[in-house]
Structure formats: C-alpha cells, structure tokens
Design a protein around this nucleic acid. Structure first.
Length: 422
RNA sequence: GGAGGAGUGCCCGAGUGGCUAAAGGGGACGGACUGUAAAUCCGUUGGCUAAGCCUACGUUGGUUCGAAUCCAACCUCCUCCA
C-alpha cells in the first residue's frame, strides 16, 4: 500500500502523471504495478455511486473528474449506480446506521444520479464508457450460494480492522450485520465487474478505502487476479470546513436541485486561498493555464474565480449553461444590474392578489422559511429596487415594477434576483 | 450479570421546578469595511395566519397551578466490577 501525496518514483503512465498533477490521488493499493498497467494499454476503471439522494453533489466531483481524465487518456470508465448496495447502506465512518431506503426511493434517486453521470461521462460508442446498476447482479444471489461463494474469502477478523468501522466498534455503537456486510457487497461488485468487463481499477473517495481494499483482496483470493484501488483526497476549504455545504444545503449537481447559475455562484465565491487548488481539481484547463491563473493576486484573482466557475459549470451543466451563468454573473454584479435579463419569471397575476415580500424571498431560495426571511428584512439585508426595505409586512404590487415589468431584489451582496412578471 | 454516570437547539456545551425558545463557544446568515475574497467589529440564528400562538431538551407515561429540571418504565451510550 502506498500513501501518496507525491509519487515516490517517476511515473511512466500519462494517466497517473495527470491524476497526480491534478491533485486527484490520495492512496493507491499498488502504485508501481498500476503505473505499469496503465502505461501498457487501456484499462477499465470503475467508480460507484449509491442512491443516498436524488442528486450527486460537489463531493462526488472528485471521482467523476478522475474518471473523465482516465477516459480522455484512452481508458474505459464504468459508472456503477448502487441500486443494490443502496438497499444495505454503507456504514463507513458513520456513527449511526443510515435510514433504510424504500425501493421506490432508491429507483427515483438512481434516476436523478444517472442524469448527472450521463452529462459528465462521454457515453458515445467511441468513448467506451458504460453505466451499470449493481442491482443487476446483487439481487440475483441466493443467500447460501452467496455465503459459500464469497464467505470463505472474508474473515471477520480482517473486516473488523478497517478504520471505516473501527470507530463504531471502539465506541461500542451498534454495527448491524446488515451494515457490516456492505463491504462484502462492494467487494463482490468489483469482482463481478472484473469478470464481466475486465475492470481492474476502482476509484473512490478516501472514505471508500476499506471497501476498495476488500474488493482488491477478493479479486486475488477468488480469481487470482490483481485488481487496483485508487482513492481521491477529501477536500476541505481553506477555512477548514468540509467543502460543498452552504446555508441552503449541499451544492447539488442536478439542475433541478440547484440552478446552473447558483452552481456557478458557488464557485465564484470561492475563497482566494482555494482558487489554485480548485482550478487544478475541478477544471480541465491545461496545467500551464492553471498555474498562470494561480499567480493572479488581489482583485485580479476575481478573474480566476470567474474562469473557475465557468469551467466547472461547463463540465457539470454544459458549455451553454456556463456561458449563460457567466453573463448573468457579469451583468448582475455590474452597476446597471437592474437592467439585466430576468433571473426569475412569475405570473403577474400574483401581484394583483398582493404578494408578500417575505414569501417572495422564500420562493426565490434566499430564505429558508418565513421567519428567516423576516430576520433578513428586519436586519436590513434586503433591497427592493435598490432601496433597503425593513418592513416585514411589505407587499408587492404593480406599482413596484420598474421598467420592463420587473423588480430587482437583493439579499446581502451575493444574492441578487431580477423577477419579471408576465 | 452487578454498580455508577450520561443523552439539550446545525455541532460542542451550560442549565437541576416558574425570570428558559433555553448561558457560552463554533458554524452559518445579515450589517459596517472590501474585491461577490480574507481578517476585524456589530447583529441575528425553531416555526407560524407574528406585540399573539404552536412545537422543542433520548422515548412513553406520571407528580405539580407550572417540568429540560422531580418520579416510573423503556431505548442508547460511557466508566468500573464480574
């Protein structure tokens, strides 16, 4: 096992060179052998995503970026949707069992995740990529058969040594058999993929190390094959916080959970200190360009942030959406932002019946509840058509519309909306 | 199996009958300052049909005019003993 921040030896394969250069490597089960294999020819690699929510979020971007690089460099990605494993729930580094997911919920979540995955990976026949669902094989096993086929390759002793379950055991928190067996399922996934698709590499988050190693060991004991595991680092922001949380919740990849513009904004608001690293990790700009942008200081760093935001948004939501978000950002944060293109459209009928300012704030996602909106207003954080409104009972009427049948609303310095009524 | 201790808001943590929607800190959000950054200072931080009401201190019951605080049972965790 290799702990990798920087490779100890010179790498032969372009794939690993790029992944290291990008900061996408944390640990590898056998760096040298993997390097040799990757430089010898195309390798099939997989990354798995469980159906814990109906959308992926920025945390999932790291393995996704790794898979994109691998595909670009001639290797074959397999994206595994966890329709089977989600029925169990990964206990890794969690102090409590996950709530059991209903079948219907899993199916709905898988559908949402699939949409993002399809965007991020080239699924054209030339791309060689595949999307599969591990329910396809995991649901087929009969219990005794499963135990007899795979059980002998796992020892409870070994399973209990993994850090991912260690703290649960040490703290004497209950770890159910259901959860404990999760690592077997993920190991079987890897074995199955190696048999079906000649997949020999698994990429995952650093919290997946234990699960991945189990798969690698199963490959060796079961089929006498050498499989490889590679983990991406856990990203925290310069402030030490886990990346990807905002007041509104996780930063989702699915456009229905978070608009492409809001997504763009998230990246635009990156702290200065994080910009170089994020450019490396989350864009595909040539490393030279990344370095150039990283040199920018002071106000100029804002340009780097815009490029970062636009690049990541292009990858996740498409070039068109990214360009649009950039334009919106540029006009919305310029002097004449109140003349820009509307960000939201509502029926003018709603003004006739009297629309509460607080309701609008909540509806636009600027406040999480009526009370939250009220606090913002009373605290002087809300501007309607340029002037601060502190009366929470304020309602909006036709008279509030400026030119173009619209009104502008800003919360703080970062959140701005132009609402058109038509 | 026995003895003792603990479970509080997003997180940590005070609170041992009414003055407690609950000290303090962290985080988050808003204001000032700025560059849609950081740092600093100030404010806010359960919900609603909002000067009123509702829900909340592991769960369920009970005592009381009144409970996060007292009692009982249960669940979970921690420490020590076997």
């Amino acid at each position: 096992m290799i702990e990798a921040g920087k490779p100890a030896t010179k790498l032969k394969s372009e794939a690993l060179q790029v992944l290291f250069e990008r900061g996408l490597v944390h640990q590898c089960t056998d760096l040298e052998a993997l390097d040799a294999k990757l430089s010898a020819g195309p390798v099939t690699a997989y990354a798995g995503f469980d159906a814990t929510a109906s959308s992926l979020h920025v945390g999932h971007l790291m393995p996704l970026m790794s898979m994109r690089w691998l595909q670009k460099l001639g290797h074959k990605p397999i994206m595994v949707l966890g329709g089977g494993t989600s029925q169990v729930g990964d206990p890794s580094f969690r102090n409590e069992a996950r709530p059991m997911l209903e079948q219907r919920q899993i199916a709905a979540n898988i559908a949402g995740i699939r949409r993002s995955v399809e965007r991020l990976i080239d699924l054209s026949p030339e791309g060689g990529a595949l999307i599969v669902d591990n329910a396809d094989w995991l649901t087929e096993f009969k219990f005794l058969e499963f135990l007899r086929d795979f059980g002998p390759h796992f020892t409870v002793n070994r399973m209990m040594t993994f850090d991912s379950v260690r703290s649960r055991l040490d703290n004497q928190m209950p770890l159910t058999v259901l959860e404990f067996c999760y690592m077997m399922l993920q190991a079987v996934d890897f074995l199955e993929l190696s048999r079906r698709h000649d997949c020999t590499l698994q990429v995952g988050g650093s919290d997946q190390w234990g699960n991945i190693v189990n798969g690698v060991e199963l490959g060796r004991k079961g089929d006498g094959r050498q499989l490889f595991g590679l983990t991406v680092p856990l990203i925290t922001t310069a402030n030490g916080a886990k990346m990807g949380k905002t007041a509104a919740g996780a930063v989702w990849l699915h456009p229905e959970h978070l608009s492409p513009f809001a997504f763009w904004q998230f990246w635009r608001n990156t702290a200065d200190a994080d910009v170089p690293r994020f450019l490396r990790l989350f864009t595909e700009l040539p490393i030279r360009e990344v370095e150039r942008l990283s040199m920018l200081e002071g106000i100029e760093r804002n340009e780097a942030k815009k490029i970062l935001a636009t690049q990541v948004t292009a990858i996740v939501h498409g070039a068109e959406a990214a360009r649009h978000a950039l334009e919106q950002g540029d006009t919305l944060f310029s002097e004449s932002w109140e003349e820009a293109e509307p960000t939201h459209r509502l029926a003018s009928l709603r003004l006739a019946t009297g629309m509460g300012l607080l309701d609008l704030l909540t509806e636009l996602g600027f406040a999480t509840s009526n009370s939250d909106a009220r606090r913002l207003v009373e605290g002087g954080g809300v501007r309607l058509n340029g002037s601060v409104i502190q009366d929470p009972r304020r309602t909006l009427a036709i008279g509030d519309l400026a030119a173009g049948e619209r009104l502008s609303l800003a919360v703080g310095r970062r959140k701005k909306a132009l609402v058109a009524f038509e």
